[in-house]
Design a protein around this nucleic acid. Structure first.
Lengths: 164, 164
DNA sequence: ATATTTTAGTTGCTTCAAGCAACCTAATTT
DNA sequence: AAATTAGGTTGCTTGAAGCAACTAAAATAT
């Protein structure tokens, strides 16, 4: 009866969610992007209980998303994003933009992301073709990839020809 | 002692996660992108228990992410993505790419997303400036937006000048 | 140098949510 | 008309989240 984990599913989204999909986890990562690095700051900014925060930080460190490193100039430790963690930025940005548009509503964004160089808001993050055209879900074909299991192949198929 | 929800936090990511951040919810949305529309198909493909599936589908319908509509040519209902739901595609795509790269590893993607028109894989989804340049987290400035609360302003500040 | 406060947790208790099985009614198929 | 499937609901059990109290070490104040 243990909570079902997604790590046995043959799907990258499941695997990703298995690691960052628990309650609080993505908010902790967001806080890390905001610059938070110390246990007590995560706690205060998020209003999360200590035991849950401890659990999530440990898991994130175990996954290599955060690194627990000695605080330079002190005997404590801080948590900082690794490359693996930093590459979650597009996930955070798309979530933020979706929340801005569909929940907060126009003109109510609490945080805006600006291009440091120009001071302008960043562009809307979109899924694009190699040629740089925006693609909607209907413009996209899902196909079983190299690492698929038979079950997936049945559902999606693989085109015989050049798929690369 | 009820599980803390994120809907009172002045943050779009929190608001988004409050709606789609529960265990199973994003996988249900992913399944919907795969084309699943019926209760029993969600159940079978995901291996989720009926009561949890019922709960999540109801919440997604209540939020306007899925619509429960009569099955054309039958007396049953199907669940289909609304515009609000379809606009979660960039979130799913970034999660999938992150999972491909950091968990499954190169060459092990179970599903690939192809441009229907050309048959080529889609581009890596990146955060870009208005001019179309890729931006890393360090290239981005976070600022309190129009809908910020005082607490946020303290943390991020608002530049006095032209921020639009 | 000592005392006080803060930090970064741990432990134990309680309640809510997830997993499971059994059941049920309406629709669909045989 | 009978059997099966779809789409749930209900009740029980276990696991995870919330809360408060406690603790050792580090940082700060005296």
């Amino acid at each position: 009866m243990k909570k079902i984990t997604f790590d046995t599913r043959n799907c990258s989204v499941s695997q990703a969610l298995n690691v960052i999909g628990e309650w609080w986890t993505l908010l902790i990562i967001l806080e890390a992007f905001f610059g938070t690095r110390r246990f007590s700051d995560f706690e205060r900014h998020l209003g999360i209980s200590k035991n849950v925060l401890t659990d999530r930080l440990q898991k994130l460190v175990a996954q290599g998303i955060l690194a627990r490193v000695p605080d330079p100039g002190g005997k404590r430790h801080i948590y900082k994003l690794s490359d693996k963690g930093r590459e979650l930025f597009p996930v955070i940005a798309t979530l933020m933009q979706w929340g801005d548009n569909w929940i907060m509503g126009k003109g109510n964004a609490p945080v805006r992301l600006l291009d440091k160089k120009t001071g302008e808001p960043i562009a809307r993050v979109t899924v694009q073709s190699r040629q740089g055209h925006d693609l909607m879900p209907r413009d996209i074909l899902m196909e079983a990839g190299e690492g698929h299991l038979p079950e997936f192949r049945e559902r999606f198929g693989v085109r015989p020809g050049k798929s690369r």
